[in-house]
């Protein structure tokens, strides 16, 4: 295959990575932005979403149900269950330590190991796939100029799947939904007011404790949703939370801690470069470059590309 189609393929892979990464990182960004909590367990909520998706899809499949139905139920149920677990963790652990920055880091590291080890003990060490609800192959055409005029041809192996396109569309819809909730609804207003000034939010009747539990659950739920979307492509595994956590932190730092538009744009930058560099060179080089980018941002623009400093 020539360079052009090859680049196009790499970009499509990058777009899928961007879609999944945007959802995961927006969850992390929401939690940091509103609560000022660095959630080290965020990757494990992602992993839990994938594992729950496998369990739910297997249970439905075991009962003779349609695999597509199992996936759809997992898509709804897994984020709700993971979000509920996170909200309970917030109310029982993080609120008890008064969201102290240092202690929340230690507490979420503890949560990380608890979730990882409980998953290992119950789900086991194997990587397991979930069947995609639809997965037709789409061959893509390529245009080249030959003999002074454009000619369409179909390079061998040049294409994608309907499922991958579905992941991109689903992530875009969910991100639009998050934007709508934050910008246009009363609960979004409450979250933004809490983010900007916790004490004033309290002084104006906002139950900040409940807002925090909701936001922590929402952040974890978004990570779980991203995982359910990606599990037909990547397989569920108890150690799969590491990469999403690292990449989400990279994205959130580059985009600006707490800035949702910045997070999405940084996810686009990191996701596309990860996809393209991984295809042309190696995934390790992609991670090295992303980490180097974070170092540059921290040195020259510590608040990130779109970050603001909030009062607390």
């Amino acid at each position: 295959m020539e360079f052009g189609p090859y680049l196009m393929l790499a970009s499509l892979e990058g777009a899928v990575t961007t879609a999944v990464l945007s959802l995961t990182a927006v969850g992390l960004s929401l939690v940091f932005g509103v609560m000022r909590v660095v959630n080290v367990a965020h990757g494990e909520f992602f992993m839990l979403g994938a594992v729950l998706a496998w369990w739910i899809a297997s249970a439905i499949g075991g009962m003779g149900g349609n695999p597509a139905l199992g996936f759809v139920i997992a898509l709804v149920l897994a984020p709700l269950v993971v979000g509920s677990i996170a909200a309970v963790a917030d109310l029982t652990i993080l609120s008890r330590i008064d969201y102290d920055p240092e202690r929340t880091i230690v507490a979420t590291i503890g949560l990380l190991y608890i979730m990882q080890q409980v998953t290992l003990m119950t789900y086991g060490p194997d990587a397991r796939p979930v069947e995609a609800p639809f997965n037709a192959r789409i061959a893509l055409p390529w245009v080249e100029f030959a003999d002074g005029r454009p000619q369409i041809y179909w390079p061998w192996g040049f294409g994608t799947t309907t499922y991958k396109l579905g992941v991109i569309v689903a992530a875009a819809i969910v991100l639009l939904g998050v934007w709508f909730v934050m910008a246009r609804t009363r609960i979004g207003l409450i979250m933004r007011a809490t983010q900007l000034d916790r004490d004033m939010a309290l002084a104006f009747g906002i139950p900040v404790g409940r807002v925090y539990a909701f936001v922590f659950g929402l952040g974890a739920g978004l990570a779980a949703l991203a995982a359910v979307l990606v599990v037909p492509i990547q397989q569920a595994h108890y150690l799969m939370g590491g990469d999403p956590l690292l990449l989400s932190f990279i994205v959130v730092i580059i985009g600006g801690l707490g800035s949702l538009p910045g997070t999405v744009l940084a996810a686009l930058l990191i996701g596309m470069s990860d996809g393209i560099i991984s295809v042309f060179f190696s995934p390790t080089l992609a991670k090295i470059i992303a980490t180097l980018l974070v170092a540059l941002v921290l040195v020259f623009r510590p608040q990130g590309l779109f970050g603001t400093r909030a009062t607390r």
């Binding site: 009363r186 207003l189 409450i190 933004r192 007011a193 900007l196 000034d197 004490d199 004033m200 939010a201 002084a203 104006f204 009747g205 906002i206 603001t308 009062t311």
Partner: peptide
């Protein structure tokens, strides 16, 4: 409560600040 230094929700609009004021009651 009108605190010292105003402590408005700086990135919210005037209308949104007033909306927050109406939430409590």
């Amino acid at each position: 409560y009108v605190p010292q230094g105003r402590r408005l929700f700086s990135e919210l609009t005037v209308a949104q600040n007033l909306e927050v004021g109406r939430l409590a009651r």
